[in-house]
Simulated scan of single mutants.
Amino acid sequence: MGGRMKYVFVFAFPFIMAMLLVGIYTSAMHSPTPKDLPVAVVGTSAQAKQMAAGLNKANGSPVDARVVASVERAKELLHDRDIVGAFVLPATAEGDAVIYTAQAAGAAQAEMVKAVLEPLASSQHLDVVEKDIAALPAHDGMGVTVMFTGIAWVLAGYIVVAAIGSGAPELNPLRRLVPLMAGWACLMSLVIWLLVGPVIGAVEGHSAAILGLGALSIFTVSMTQTMLSRFMGLLAVLPGITLFVFLGVPASGLSVSEYAVPGFFRFLHDVLPLPAAGETLRSVLYFDGSGAGGHLLVLAVWTVVALALTAVVDLRRHRSGSDSGSATGASTADFQVPEPAPAT
Rank of each mutant, 00 (worst) to 15 (best):
M1K: 08
G3Y: 12
M5F: 13
F15Y: 05
I16M: 08
M19Y: 08
M19P: 13
Y25R: 09
S27V: 14
A28D: 11
M29V: 07
T33C: 04
P34V: 07
L37I: 07
T44G: 14
Q50S: 09
A58W: 01
N59F: 15
V67G: 11
A97N: 04
V98H: 00
G106E: 05
A107L: 06
E111Q: 13
Q124D: 11
Q124N: 12
A135V: 03
D140T: 00
G150Y: 03
V160M: 01
N172M: 14
N172F: 15
P173K: 02
P179G: 06
A182M: 14
C186E: 05
C186V: 15
I192H: 04
V203M: 00
A209G: 06
S222I: 02
T226E: 11
M232V: 03
L234R: 04
A236F: 05
L238H: 06
L238M: 13
I241K: 08
F244S: 14
F244H: 15
V249L: 13
L254C: 07
E258N: 10
P262H: 05
T280M: 04
F287T: 09
V298C: 03
R317T: 06
H318T: 08
R319W: 13
D323R: 15
S324K: 12
A330R: 12
A333W: 04
A341E: 09
